[in-house]
C-alpha cells in the first residue's frame, strides 16, 4: 500500500459525497478511480454501511411504546411531586439565596458580635435607658424617619450609645462641666434633643461646685421643676 493510499483510506467512508473538506474530496476523486486497492476498499466500506442501514432494529410495536410512555409518565409525575418542594423557586433564585446565605450569615454574625461588644462596654453600670436609646437609634422610629431632622438626633443617640463617657448620671462632673450644664439648663433649649435631668442624681453634679454655684444651680432647677421645662441640651455638654 502506498503512503498516499494509507492516508486517503482514512477518508474513504465519506467518499464520494460525505462530510469531506474540499481539498480531500478533490484528492480522493483524483486518486480512487485510478487505484484498484482504494476502489475495492471504498466499495467494501460502502457495502458495510449499506448492510447496517438495511438491517435496522425491528420496531417492537405500538403496544410496547404505549406501555413505555405510560410507565415513563408515572415516573415523571412521581419525580415532579418529589421535586416540587425543593424547586419552589427557580434555580437562579435558589443560587442567589445560597450566595446570600453564604455572605449574609458571616456578616450577620459579625454584626451581632460588634453589637454585643458595644453593648457590653456600657456594662452593668450603664443606665437602663441608654441601651434602649442605642437600640432605638439603630432602628429609627417612623416618627423620626419621617422628620427632616431625624438623622441628626439618631446619629447623636448612636454617638451617645457608643461613647464611653455616657454614664453622666453616675460620673462626677467637673466644675466646668457643671457650669456648662447649668448654663445650658438655664438658657438654650433645643427641642430636637432633650433629656430629663430630673432623673439624674444631683450629688455627683454638685460635687466640685462652690456654694454660690450650687445655690444658683438648685434655684434654677427648682424653677424648671415648677414650670416643667427641666431639660438641657446634651450636645453642648458632650461636645
Amino acid at each position: 500500500m502506498k503512503w498516499q493510499c494509507a492516508l486517503l483510506q482514512r477518508w474513504l467512508p465519506e467518499y464520494p459525497d460525505g462530510e469531506l473538506p474540499a481539498l480531500w474530496r478533490a484528492w480522493l476523486r483524483r486518486h480512487v478511480p485510478g487505484c484498484p486497492e482504494c476502489r475495492a476498499e471504498a466499495a467494501a466500506l460502502a457495502q458495510v454501511v449499506k448492510t447496517i442501514k438495511g438491517a435496522p432494529l425491528a420496531d417492537p410495536g405500538p403496544e410496547f411504546w404505549r406501555d413505555m410512555q405510560r410507565e415513563l409518565h408515572r415516573q415523571l409525575v412521581h419525580s415532579v411531586q418529589e421535586a416540587e418542594p425543593a424547586e419552589a423557586q427557580p434555580p437562579h433564585r435558589r443560587r442567589w439565596l445560597t450566595r446570600l446565605t453564604l455572605v449574609g450569615a458571616p456578616a450577620l454574625a459579625m454584626l451581632a458580635i460588634y453589637l454585643g461588644v458595644q453593648m457590653s462596654e456600657f456594662g452593668p453600670s450603664a443606665p437602663a435607658t441608654r441601651p434602649q436609646e442605642a437600640r432605638e437609634a439603630l432602628a429609627p422610629s417612623p416618627r423620626l424617619a419621617a422628620s427632616p431632622k431625624a438623622k441628626a438626633p439618631a446619629a447623636l443617640r448612636m454617638e451617645e450609645a457608643s461613647a464611653p463617657k455616657t454614664d453622666m448620671a453616675r460620673r462626677p462632673a467637673s466644675g466646668g462641666e457643671s457650669l456648662r450644664l447649668a448654663a445650658t439648663a438655664n438658657g438654650n433649649h433645643d427641642q430636637d434633643e432633650d433629656a430629663d435631668i430630673l432623673t439624674w442624681e444631683l450629688e455627683p453634679v454638685l460635687t466640685g461646685m462652690n456654694d454660690q454655684e450650687k445655690q444658683l444651680f438648685l434655684d434654677r432647677l427648682e424653677q424648671r421643676k415648677k414650670d416643667g421645662s427641666c431639660v438641657f441640651k446634651l450636645a453642648g455638654h458632650w461636645s
Binding site: R10, W11, L12, P13, L45, V48
Partner: peptide, 9 residues
C-alpha cells in the same frame, strides 16, 4: 471520523 472508519473496517 477516525473511530467510524476503524469501526467500519
Amino acid at each position: 471520523r477516525v473511530n467510524y472508519c476503524q469501526a467500519l473496517k
